[in-house]
Design a protein around this nucleic acid. Structure first.
Lengths: 227, 227
DNA sequence: CCGGCAAAGCTGTCTGACAACATAATTGTA
DNA sequence: TACAATTATGTTGTCAGACAGCTTTGCCGG
């Protein structure tokens, strides 16, 4: 029965079936024609097309028409489980690329409020390191920095990637060769340099400091794992 | 400028921002309220909600309401359709981050074979620019460079992202203010500098040249779109 | 041939309305 | 009072018609 299926779902199925039989980049019939074809209103057709657009299957151009897109994978990259040190290193390089750019953009675009939040996150991290491992606060610091970049796509990708990498780290190396005091001092130094660069609106220095911080962190993790 | 942003895109951005400040599973205001809040019609709100539904960010129940879904998606980032110049610029910044890191890593890790393939790709691009637009060869050049980085995660993400951005450009009107000869000269210069840096195994210079190349390309695209 | 100009076509958006469904409020009854 | 049935209200889904803004087409004069 079609009665349990919403009309826009019917339209989606029908149009998707139509697209399967056309060439890449082909122009689809106008919305009004689809409506008449399927015995539905234009609103239902548009609802279905909105979903197809969001999925990247079609693209509409005002005044011109709607066109089929039969190329490209829907998602960027699947974050499958990290199963080797080599994969961890590869993801870490992706993170390095994104995070250093975030640092540079943040230095350029931060508002005063952004900076205040960043400094607050830094202090919260230092405070938590006196008692605990401060992992949650570390993530919060990097998230606060990502907000300063004012680029949701970039910060979203970076956030997911970071949590993915951290979820691996949590499961393995729990012991560190560093004492908590040493760790605290290092983070205070490296994060502080980043914050200072962001405060000074020096994008290049922020990028460099972030690179230094992440590379140093990678070295620490690797030396942990080898002990 | 918001004028290049469609009304449904505005609604999408606003509602997405609203969702960022609510708890998981929270009920959203009715469509009519959103419409009044943003000064838009219910149709535009529904268009935005259709996209959010397709992206799995909200879920609507007939007669009940629309609810936020804030459970993290398994994939890294969904490459949803680019619907405004703002989003294009955001994705472009993500690309810049990945591509410049790829250039640096490529300079460090390239083998002699890698370099030969890169130079071959560059010559093929220059040759194709004498006759056609050379878009396929441009992509091939960047793909060849990505191979040199020897990081499949990074090159895979970059490849998908690049094709996604290009698919937008292909469909939009793509007249250029540059003549083919000018374009050829620019690409020869910029790509040549990258190749030289990779050949010299100078990672920092490769990164800088790639940044220059992409930023110059963005300027060209923007000036095209504004004419 | 072709360059400008009018016409038609298409998507994007608005308005108003009603149906279908879910939930809250009210009322009737033991 | 406690509880079940019924009504009222709120919300999404769908329909219909209209117009604005943009793109493409096609015509006409040169």
């Amino acid at each position: 029965m079609d009665s349990d299926e919403s009309r826009s779902a019917i339209a989606y199925r029908q149009i998707a079936g139509y697209i399967d039989n056309v060439a890449d980049g082909a122009r689809l019939p106008p919305e009004a024609d689809f409506a008449e074809m399927f015995g539905l209103s234009r609103a239902s057709i548009r609802e279905a097309l909105a979903r197809l657009r969001a999925e990247g299957i079609v693209r509409s151009r005002k005044g011109s028409g709607t066109f089929a897109i039969r190329t490209g994978a829907p998602e960027m990259v699947r974050l499958s489980a990290i199963s080797s040190l080599r994969e961890l290193a590869q993801w870490h390089e992706v993170r390095l690329a994104l995070e250093s750019e975030v640092a540079a953009l943040s230095a350029d675009r931060r508002t005063e409020d952004d900076l205040a939040r960043l400094q607050a996150a830094q202090e919260a991290l230092l405070a938590s390191l006196l008692t605990g491992r401060g992992e949650r606060e570390d993530v919060a610091f990097h998230a606060a920095l990502a907000v300063c970049a004012h680029n949701p796509k970039l910060s979203d990708a970076l956030g997911r990637l970071t949590s993915h990498i951290f979820s691996w780290g949590n499961l393995s190396a729990q012991r560190s060769v560093l004492t908590m005091a040493e760790r605290r001092e290092l983070i205070a130094l490296e994060h502080g340099a980043i914050v200072a660069a962001v405060a000074a609106r020096d994008g290049d220095r922020a990028r460099a400091e972030m690179r230094r911080h992440l590379l140093a962190g990678r070295m620490r993790v690797l030396s942990d794992l080898q002990t």
